[in-house]
Structures are given as structure tokens and as C-alpha cells.
Design a binder for these strands. Sequence first.
DNA 1: CCACGGATTGGCT
DNA 2: GCCAATCCGTGGA
Length: 202
Amino acid sequence: MIDKKNKISSAFYRRDVHLVAKELLGKYLVRKLEQKYLTGMIVEVEAYDGSIDESSHSFRGRTERNEVMFRGGGLLYVYFTYGMHFCANVVTGKKGDGKAILIRALEPVEGLEEMSFNRFGRKEFSQREFRNLTNGPAKICRAFGIGRKLNGIDLGSDEIFILKERKIPGPQIVTSTRIGIKKSVDLPWRYYIKDNPFVSKI
DNA sequence: CCACGGATTGGCT
DNA sequence: GCCAATCCGTGGA
């Protein structure tokens, strides 16, 4: 059982989006769902910065959808895409910035049977399904029960939070271009833990 | 292993 | 009307 006492506080998130993105690697994302804890280590993230990044939802200013991105660091921004998927972001920076970090992949740590049930409809999972539990942004939301109603939630809440502790002392961080976008494709704003088997793509 | 296309809602031009 | 910060199944090597 992972100790759940040391939640990250909002000051951590109100800093530079790239610094926060890299520091999130190796940390535990925890979701409390029906009195059970689902925990995963963050292994892959992408930074989105609307001030210079055409692929960011916040690039053309505030709208009803992206409004949470502008509220300031420490909130969860959940959006709906491709008509069927949700993706979760950690809002960073100051109020009005419009910056956030997409959580692209986790290494499952705790609550694996619940994650499997949420993903596949059963507690049992094969070796292949294990690697597929949370190795993508929409897979994470499905496995962790993250949907519209968590959009804008404070990451210091009991329902979902991130712990201060790193599992690994000095993660080897790889920097690359981002996945699945068609604008600002050359910005090297994807960060992931080298050789981690749960990273979505090499 | 890789490439390709369909699913399916809603945001925004 | 266009198309998305994705995923999955299918078909071929």
C-alpha cells in the first residue's frame, strides 16, 4: 500500500510548464474510486503552451472548453475528443497562462484489477493487456474513471491527486516531438522515462 | 511486427 | 462542414 499523505501542493504546479512536466515523471498519480485507490507512476507527458504553440487548445484564447487551462496551476483539465475519448491534463503556470501537461502514459502500481475492469470489463488480464492498461492518454482516463465531471477538479482533492515522492531518484528523461498533432509538430515538448515499457510510442 | 481505416461527438471556423 | 492532443480491429509481411 502506497502512503497517500504527501500530496503535491499548488505551488509546484504554478511554475514553468516544461520544468513541471519533467518533474512529474516518476511521480504517482492516485485516483480514489469507490473507496479503492488506483495508482500509476507517470512515465510520459507532453507540454502544451498556448502562447506559442498552435496545437494547444488554448492557442486562440479562452473558450468554454479550454477555460480550465486559464485558471492557473494545480487543476485537472479533462477534454473529450474523437467522439469517444477523454484525455487528462495537469494545468500549470499562473492564472491566465493557458498552459497544461497531457498525461500520456502511466506504469500501473496499485489497483490493477480495477483498472482492468474499467478497461476490459473483467478483473483478469493477459500479459499483453497488462502493458495496454494505461499506455495512452485515453486509456488512462478509461482505466482511472476520469471523465467530464473531473474537469476543473483541484489536484489536491481526495478524488484525484499526485504524490510528492518519486519512485526513481534520477529518471533518465528522453525529449522528443509530440504525438498525434498536426500543428507545431517540431516543438520538442514530449518527455518520457527512457526504456520504460509503458511509454506509448518510442 | 506494421499500415490502414472506422468509430462517433462536439468544438470551432 | 471539417476534423480532432485516440484506440482498436483487420489484414498482410
